[in-house]
């Protein structure tokens, strides 16, 4: 016969399994969403919410944004912020983006770069 303590232990074990299962589901959804997203076509630069420039992802280059506060670099189909004058450099540390909908934001300078697809 199952004791009450055993019963409680079983339930806690199943609680743990539930938590682990949910985290696995979250990770799979994350990777599925990532895998089904398309490669982008253009890099759109916005400052203060207004679009100031668009560059094709296929063409490598280095661009100065917002009067030089941020340097955008496009190379090998990926875009990233090479350098910025803000203290936290979060935009530089955000790394390279290439998929539709990816974005890098620099809050102090109100600069955002975003990848768009062909149809947008």
């Amino acid at each position: 016969m199952q004791t009450k303590a055993n019963f409680a232990k079983d339930r806690l074990l199943r609680d743990l399994l539930l938590a682990v299962a949910l985290i696995l589901v979250a990770l799979s959804v994350f990777f599925i969403l990532r895998a089904t997203r398309d490669e982008g076509e253009t890099v759109v630069v916005t400052v203060n919410g207004e679009t100031v420039a668009e560059y094709p992802l296929s063409q490598s280059g280095e661009y100065s944004i917002n009067g030089g506060t941020n340097i955008l670099k496009i190379e090998g189909g990926e875009a990233y912020i090479l350098d910025a004058d803000c203290p936290d450099l979060l935009c530089v540390r955000s790394g390279k983006i290439s998929l539709e909908g990816d974005r890098v934001v620099c809050l102090p300078n109100r600069v955002m770069i975003e990848i768009r697809g062909a149809d947008q």
Binding site: A19, L22, I23, A26, V29, L33, G101
Partner: peptide, 21 residues
Amino acid sequence: AIAAYLPPLIISGTLAGILVG
């Protein structure tokens, strides 16, 4: 497109649920 928020929200919901539980 909001579905993109699902993974972090499932994980945060799980952790918050453990704490609240």
